[in-house]
Design a protein around this nucleic acid. Structure first.
Lengths: 191, 191
DNA sequence: CGCAAGTGAGACATCTTTGTCTCACTTTGG
DNA sequence: CCAAAGTGAGACAAAGATGTCTCACTTGCG
């Protein structure tokens, strides 16, 4: 039964290709299939054997991004302790996926009419739930809707990922900057 | 001398086409020249008479966006009064340009290698100067760099513009949400 | 060794977008 | 009324990306 080994090996290769494609498309979202293949160190023909086409590749990246988000949401234990600390844990867990999420967030904006992947709705739900919990516990202000807070978190993740990749801010500050701005804002506490 | 009238009429038409293109590309950043032309109510041939090509159109949109930003920066009188209020005036002045800025911000991310338009550098400078002023006056915290605060403002503008255009948040809350989150954060003042 | 599977290189047709051009029609101003 | 300018519709080739296919080569395993 070489079939099992076959599919196993394929899965590994496929994942490596996917990671490499994510890394490239994060920097250049319009990269060609040929560029993606070269970046992965394989030929365009082999790339095509893994992913039926560009759409399939992007959809696979979306699935990967959703999986990483779900994993980060689990890791961050959103229901434990103060909501602010949960946000901190979440951003820290999301940091490695920042570039991929930036790509998918802007890419998703193109699918104006089409229904978005069910996975994002589920993630939105959990994120909104976290902010709502913070409001109900009196930790977060209630004049900013949970939906907006979730949206703002996405925006800050994108800004942060791009600013880091462009060298405008240091990568080590990624989590701190996002969490501090999202939770505390720019105004000095005493001011 | 019909030449003067000619150029004058052209300028008006050109500006209308530009606005319409901005409105369309804001929603669908990959729209083709044909779609842009149809959206403007003109033929593709005429569109080409106004803008040599897609690059020229995008560059013209960039120039428009820069001009609107500069105008907003002037209107907001960044050097007057508390920096926090200046930020509020700025976001309010920027609100009508939110969609266009979102388009240009994400579009600019594609020009990774190339040098960006000098105009953006000047705008960044003024924006960073505003946040620096707020820090020096003791109004803003100093553990978040002015560069990051400026970047975060861009990100929140993009998130806000998309959230409004997708109907996830109400358009009338645009300025309030962005300013309050940017300056005050999600955490309740007393918490 | 010999075979089967996977891969790389490249040819090829196709599709989309773009840029250019022509031609007929409409509008405008003298 | 007439001529000039602008416009719309469409044809056309060129360029870029994609998807498909073939063929030779390597690799791994019996």
């Amino acid at each position: 039964m070489s079939h099992l080994r076959y599919s196993c090996l394929m899965a590994l290769d496929r994942d490596q290709v996917l990671r490499s494609a994510a890394a490239l498309l994060t920097r250049k979202s319009t990269a060609t299939m040929d560029e993606v293949a070269k970046a992965a160190g394989i030929s365009r023909a082999t790339l095509h054997r893994h992913f039926a086409g560009r759409d399939a590749l992007v959809r696979a990246l979306e699935t990967l991004g959703i999986a990483e988000c779900e994993a980060a949401l689990d890791t961050a234990r959103l229901d434990d302790g103060p909501a602010g600390e949960a946000v901190h844990r979440l951003v820290r867990a999301l940091e490695p996926s920042g570039g991929l999420l930036a790509f998918l967030y802007t890419e998703n904006q193109l699918f104006e009419g089409e229904e978005q992947n069910q996975g994002w709705a589920r993630i939105d739900e959990r994120l909104v739930g976290l902010f709502r919990r913070g409001q109900e516990s009196g930790e977060f202000r209630i004049d900013l809707t949970p939906v907006w807070l979730a949206e703002a978190l996405y925006g800050l993740l994108v800004s942060g990922a791009w600013a880091v990749s462009d060298g405008r801010v240091a990568g080590k500050d990624f989590t701190y900057m996002i969490v501090e701005l999202l939770l505390g804002g720019a105004r000095r506490a005493g001011a």
